[in-house]
């Protein structure tokens, strides 16, 4: 009887150690250390309870436990075992006092500047069909576009010398601001947006004050579009105009640019056949 009990306990222990855990979400350069080997973490990757997950600063990992059908999240940088990650997450989730206190607005103001959250996406689908019946059916792939822009940034080939297919003028304003004017002398609509990139940074890519956060600019044939931003712009930030022949989701493109800038493999591609023009204004 005792022997049977020991066998059952052993089997349970083995089963628990081999229980199905998988990486549900991976954000950032997360690594998994298993049996002495360290590999880059990937979504869907199976992990063992005894494996270690190495989370970088700003990274995030979510582990799906198939046994209890729960997703455990950790954003704490460092090395942590899968089991400990789940235990800690459970502990934090159960701490009602800390969870409530974390939402209180008592504390120092954020030292960062105004944080922009781009959640309003321009729903141009219906009206776009009126503007551009053909273009309504097309959307530039955000991943492809993002990687292409990232490759140009990495290669340092962003300059104002690139030949844009339409006349684009930009000028510095008296107060330090910036203005641009674009004239569409082509036979089809053009789509563009303007992002800003901090020089030397791989993460600081955002929508420019001259950009269009809801959707993208659409300029019809025989139309001119101009915009001016009077307050001084940060001289360490470059304002980059990205022009294509169909719409693109600037939020997703920005995400892909940042991803690609942080991964040399992704930003090495430079498909010059893409109908994309990048113009520094």
């Amino acid at each position: 009887m005792q022997r049977l009990l020991i066998i059952l306990l052993l089997a349970f222990g083995i089963n628990t150690a081999m229980a199905h855990y998988s990486l549900f979400t991976v954000v950032g350069d997360v690594k998994v250390e298993s049996a002495g080997k360290t590999v880059k973490a990937a979504k869907g990757q199976t992990v063992k309870a005894t494996d270690y997950i190495i989370i970088p600063q700003g990274g995030k990992v979510e582990v799906l436990n198939d046994l209890d059908k729960r997703v455990y999240t950790s954003i704490k940088p460092g090395k942590i075992s899968v089991t400990k990650l789940m235990i800690e997450a459970r502990g934090v989730a159960a701490d009602n006092g800390a969870n409530v206190a974390s939402r209180m607005n008592l504390g120092r103001k954020s030292q960062k500047g105004t944080e922009k959250v781009y959640v309003e996406k321009g729903m141009v689908r219906r009206s776009l069909a009126t503007y551009d019946p053909e273009g309504d059916q097309m959307e530039m792939n955000a991943e492809t576009l993002g990687r292409y822009v990232a490759s140009r940034i990495s290669a340092g080939t962003l300059s104002s010398g690139e030949e844009a297919p339409v006349p684009v003028e930009s000028k510095r304003l008296a107060e330090g601001g910036l203005g641009f004017k674009m004239e569409n002398n082509l036979q089809f609509p053009i789509y563009f947006n303007i992002i800003k990139i901090r020089k030397g940074s791989k993460d600081d890519v955002n929508i420019s004050p001259l950009g269009q956060p809801a959707g993208s600019y659409v300029v019809l044939p025989q139309q001119t579009l101009s915009r001016e931003h009077f307050p001084a712009l940060d001289e360490d930030e470059e304002q980059i105009l990205i022009m294509t022949n169909c719409q693109y989701d600037v939020d997703k493109v920005i995400e892909e640019i940042v991803k690609a800038l942080n991964d040399p493999d992704l930003s090495s591609s430079n498909d010059s056949s893409l109908p994309v023009y990048i113009h520094k204004i």
Partner: peptide
């Protein structure tokens, strides 16, 4: 909002 912000979710 507080509950949804916890690090454990049900799949």
């Amino acid at each position: 909002q507080i509950a949804d912000n916890r690090p454990v979710r049900t799949f």
